[in-house]
Structures are given as structure tokens and as C-alpha cells.
């Protein structure tokens, strides 16, 4: 079956197509859509409806995941606008950003070597603050300035931070569990 949602993720959830987003509204729209298409609603239906429900519920979950994460949401908005974020190909970054990256890496390595979970948790909080600042800029670039190239750079930066966050999370987990 070749079903696909004609509308984009934003219209699927009845939300305006922009970076700034009311998280509570997204959550409740997702629940409303899920309540319609979840396979549990079709447990005793025919095979055709079961398959359609599986596909549509999968799609709704994917759309929700994409919009919920600021990085994925920004990437998606750029993709809708036909802009490639070049996250795997374009690694040129301003020198000060790269310096900061190296410092982060060192700090994480040190805290890890010292088995210092508290220090790792502090790093995670600091990182979240930096990420929040980037997200703020993304909002301006995407929603107000219409600066798509600038937004693509911000997406690449945010991607770096997300990787660092993942690294910290893995380190904390390996120490705790």
C-alpha cells in the first residue's frame, strides 16, 4: 500500500510551521493523533486496517520525535525549505567553536578518568545551557530573520553539542550502572 501523509509534520499536528513551539500543544496533539491511529484501535479489524494503522502510528511517532527535538525540528524545517544541513560533509567551523569543543572533550575525559559523576553531571548542565543559547539563535534565524544558511551553521553546531551530551550520558551510565 502506498499511503503517505500529504501534509508535513506540522500540519499533521495542526501546528504552525515554525521553530518556536508550544511543547504542551505538541504533546497533546500527538496523543490525539495516536488515539486515532494506534494499532490497539484496530486489534480486531481486518488486515488492511491493521497494516494502515501500523504505518500511520509509526509515522505519527516519527513526526512527534522529529518535532520534539529542537535539533531535529530545525533540520526538518531546513529540509522543507530545501536546504541541506551538510552535517556529515561540512566540517568547517569557526576556530573559537572548535577550541571550545576541544575544551569540552578534555573536561569530559578528565571527569571520566576520575570517575567523577558529579563533575560529569555539571558538564551536562553547562552543555544544556550552551545548547539553549544556540536554540535561541536558531529561533531567530528561522522564524524572524529567515536566515537559512545561518540556521544551517547553527544546526551543525547544535549537532556537535548533542554528540557531546551523548558522550557525557554514556560516561555517566558506564560509571553508575
Amino acid at each position: 500500500m502506498n499511503f503517505d501523509f500529504k501534509q508535513d509534520h506540522f500540519s499533521l499536528f495542526g501546528l504552525p510551521r515554525r521553530f518556536a513551539l508550544d511543547a504542551g500543544q505538541l504533546d497533546s496533539a500527538w496523543r490525539t493523533v495516536a488515539a486515532q491511529v494506534h494499532p490497539d484501535r484496530y486489534a480486531s479489524a481486518g488486515d488492511a486496517e491493521k497494516r494502515a494503522a501500523l504505518m500511520m502510528a509509526t509515522h505519527a511517532n516519527e513526526a512527534y520525535r522529529t518535532l520534539k527535538s529542537p535539533l531535529a525540528r530545525a533540520r526538518y524545517l531546513l529540509q522543507l525549505a530545501g536546504v541541506d544541513t551538510q552535517e556529515d560533509t561540512n566540517t568547517s567551523m569557526p576556530a573559537d567553536f572548535l577550541m571550545a569543543q576541544m575544551e569540552w572533550r578534555e573536561a569530559i575525559g578528565e571527569a571520566k578518568d576520575e570517575h567523577d559523576v558529579a563533575a560529569l553531571e555539571k558538564l551536562a548542565r553547562d552543555l544544556q545551557r550552551d545548547a539553549a543559547a544556540l536554540q535561541q539563535h536558531l529561533g531567530v534565524a528561522l522564524d524572524d530573520a529567515g536566515d537559512l544558511d545561518g540556521a544551517a551553521v547553527l544546526v551543525r553546531k547544535l549537532r556537535f553539542l548533542e554528540k557531546l551530551e551523548q558522550e557525557i550520558g554514556d560516561a555517566i551510565e558506564s560509571l553508575l550502572f
Binding site: F3, F13, V33, Q36, E49, R51, A52, A53, M56
Partner: peptide, 16 residues
Amino acid sequence: ETFAARRMDRNVQRAL
């Protein structure tokens, strides 16, 4: 099959 998918889509729209 296609009918089922269209109906589901309509229901989503209505619910939203």
C-alpha cells in the same frame, strides 16, 4: 486497503 487509510486520515483530521 486504500479506503482504510483514507478513512483513518479523515478521522485524524476530525479529531484534531
